[in-house]
Write a protein that binds this DNA or RNA. Structure first.
Lengths: 215, 215
DNA sequence: CTGTGGTTAAACCGTTCGGTTAAACCAGGG
DNA sequence: CCCTGGTTTAACCGAACGGTTTAACCACAG
């Protein structure tokens, strides 16, 4: 589980190129089956590429996984950071922060399973870069919460707990809904409430979180 | 991935007996490495039992896993149900509900990784019994929220979202803390806030959730 | 003493999986 | 026209893995 990048980084940039195709396929397969549940053969198959090519382009399984997870979770971290930076005022910043996460998760649904499994495994394979990104998010969020507290808008809270709360809520809701919707036997009463919410998960979470941390 | 139970259920009850030892070891290994990351050899090794005995006692990998997850998450479900039943008044019930989860997770830390991976995989290997347990929790929680709403204590919310919020927060916080504490390079400022919280995660979550859903 | 049920050791089987290799192929550029 | 770099095909390797089997062992009960 080293933190190696792709041999030819240039190839990753050009869409349609083989390395890119492999990365995309790998992301999907890893998201579905986890690290040890994923077989290189299937990745090659889904990428429409020969297994030999796969190894020629990227390397072994660990390298491939490291690249995937870095691309997946590094992206969202940067988005959050810049979204918070652009908003002003504590409440608005919280809004931007949550919104960005929900958007990112909406746009590529491979994020939730990968991140959940990564957290579940204690971050064993988490590249250092990603951890630094997350740390950045936390410091920014801490700043926002502190700013709100000074202005007597927010109560005193733990930034880490809040971040876990937001991430946990969104990821669990996203993935949990899929499970729930597959069950045909559950009482209809439980499903009713969630239909109108689906349009605005972000809005709902923002509301709940703000109510929770506001003075 | 069938939902078979142990051949000799009686053995599970008597502590020190082989089947029990296997279940305990299996729970730990599955929690560490996930389903496909777990090897039967290691379980046998950790249980201090021959592999042949393992198969003699329980059966194949799927059966073993089904038993483990059922025992893990079925237990917590029952605890929650009975804890809520014993409390009275919406706020107190929410308190009991969250408290029970935190206690269960504290008592056996194998729960978070297993449940997170289970959710991440879309509940592919989730036994029906477990799903029913969760559904029970949801209906009870829905009742509590509705009772609070009628009494104009709570706002109108989605029980499912709230449940995901509580579970997500607790599990992510528990597992996330482990990752965070392993990083020696992160700014000390981030760690400060969480020390005093550690004593009372349950209390903190209860407070936040209640503030979030109260009118 | 004899049966019986749980346990062990160790070999074994068939399969899968990660990874390699070698030879041929095919494009585009000099 | 040939060189080169990416690609394919297909065979192959060695290890690991899930699972089975067989024979022996041991303790305890009838």
């Amino acid at each position: 589980m080293e933190q190696i990048l792709i041999k030819k980084e240039t190839n990753t940039e050009k869409p349609g190129k083989t390395a890119r195709k492999i990365l995309v396929a790998a992301r999907a397969v890893f998201a579905e089956n986890g690290y040890s549940g994923t077989h290189m053969n299937e990745i090659a198959l889904r990428a429409g590429v020969n297994k030999a090519t796969l190894y020629y382009q990227i390397g072994d399984k660990d390298t491939l996984y490291a690249n995937v997870i870095h691309q997946v979770v590094g992206n969202i971290a940067q988005n959050i950071a810049q979204a918070i930076a652009h908003a002003n005022g504590p409440e608005e910043k919280i809004h931007a922060y949550i919104n960005t996460i929900v958007n990112a998760v909406d746009k590529n649904p491979e994020i939730p399973p990968i991140m959940m499994r990564e957290v579940a495994s204690g971050g064993a394979t988490m590249p250092r870069v990603v951890l630094e990104d997350i740390a950045l998010i936390l410091t920014i969020l801490a700043g926002v919460l502190e700013e709100g507290r000074k202005k007597s808008i927010f109560i005193e809270t733990s930034p880490f707990l809040i971040h876990m709360m937001v991430m946990g809520t969104i990821l669990f809701y996203k993935k949990g809904s899929l499970i729930k919707d597959k069950q045909s036997w559950i009482p209809e009463a439980l499903k009713v409430h969630d239909k109108k919410l689906k349009a605005g998960l972000a809005k709902e979470v923002v509301m709940l979180v703000l109510k929770a941390i506001k003075r």
